[in-house]
Nucleic acid binder design. Structure first.
Lengths: 144, 144
DNA sequence: ACACTAATTGTAAATATTATAAAGTAATAA
DNA sequence: TTATTACTTTATAATATTTACAATTAGTGT
C-alpha cells in the first residue's frame, strides 16, 4: 500500500468517515491513476472488482473525499467533472484539442489572493487557475 | 444603444453572423445586466419580449458569441454555466456562500503562462483564474 | 421583391448528477 | 465474539442541463 493511500485512510479515520471497500478502491484508483478521471471513468475502472457498485456510490464518495479535503473537483464546460487526488500544490495545463491534463508545479498565487481580498472585501479561501493550450502531440498532428 | 453593443454588432457583421432580434436582445441583456447570467436567466429575462423564443436559441447563440469571441463561458461544479460579455481583462471573485460574482481587475498572469509553456511544451493560448471566498454580506450574516 | 441560406422553434434525446428507500455492512462496546 | 447502531451501498427514479433534429421562418444581397 502506498504512503499516500495510508495517509488518506488515516485522514478518513480521523474525520470519522468509514472505510468501506469501495472507498478504499476509489482512493487507490485516484492515487495510482496519475490522471484526472471522471466519475464514470472510476466507475468503469472498478466494475471488474465491484460488479454491483452503483454510480451513485462513486459520486457520493467523491463528494465525501472532497469535503474532507482529499480530492479536488475540476469542472469544465464541455465535459463532466474530473477528480484529482490532492498531493502538493500544483496547477493544470489542459490541451484544448485532446483534453490531456498535465500537472504544472508553481508557487501559489498568494499575492493575487491578497489583492483580491483587499479590493473586494471578500474573505478569500482559495483560488483556481488553469492554463489552456495545445499539447506537443497535437501540435505535431496539426502541422501535418 | 451603448457603445459596447454597437461594437459587438459590428463584430458579428464582420464575421458574417446574421443579426437577428434574438441575438440583439441576448447581447443587450449580457451587456446591460452587469452580472453573469446562466442560459436560463437570459431565457427567462427575454420571455416577455420574445414569448416564442426557445431555450435552444439561447444556447445556440451563446455558443456563436463564444466562438466569435464576444462572450466567455464560466463553468463551475455545482450549477450551470454562466456567461460573461468580454470587456477588459479581469478575473472573478466568487462567494462560496451565496454565489455572488465580483469582477476583479488584475494584470494578466503572463509570466505563469510562459513558465507553463516552457515546462510542459504546450503552446499556451490562455488561462483561467478564479478566487473563492466569502463576500462581506455573508461574512456579516455568519458572525450573528 | 426574390431567392438563397441560415436561424428559430418545438420537441425529443443525451448526459450528468442527485434523491430516495430498502438492504447491507463497518465500527463500537459489552 | 456478537449485538447494536448508524452509516453506506444499491437500484431506481428524478432532476437539470445541454444538444440534436426536422420543419418552419426570416435575414441578406442582388
Amino acid at each position: 500500500m502506498s504512503h499516500q493511500l495510508k495517509e488518506a485512510l488515516d485522514t478518513l479515520k480521523e474525520t470519522g468517515v468509514r472505510i468501506t471497500p469501495q472507498r478504499h478502491a476509489i482512493l487507490e484508483y485516484l492515487i495510482n491513476s496519475m490522471s484526472h478521471p471522471t466519475a464514470d471513468d472510476i466507475y468503469k475502472a472498478l466494475e471488474g472488482k465491484f460488479p454491483n457498485m452503483s454510480v451513485a456510490t462513486v459520486y457520493n464518495n467523491l463528494r465525501v473525499f472532497r469535503e474532507v479535503g482529499l480530492v479536488k473537483e475540476l469542472t469544465y464546460g464541455d465535459a463532466s467533472s474530473r477528480f484529482d487526488f490532492i498531493t502538493t500544490h500544483h496547477y493544470h495545463v489542459i490541451c484544448e484539442k485532446c483534453g490531456k491534463i498535465v500537472d504544472f508545479h508553481y508557487p501559489g498565487l498568494d499575492e493575487v489572493e491578497q489583492l483580491a481580498s483587499h479590493v473586494t472585501g471578500f474573505k478569500v479561501s482559495h483560488h483556481r487557475m488553469e492554463i489552456y493550450g495545445t499539447c506537443p502531440d497535437c501540435a505535431i498532428k496539426e502541422a501535418h
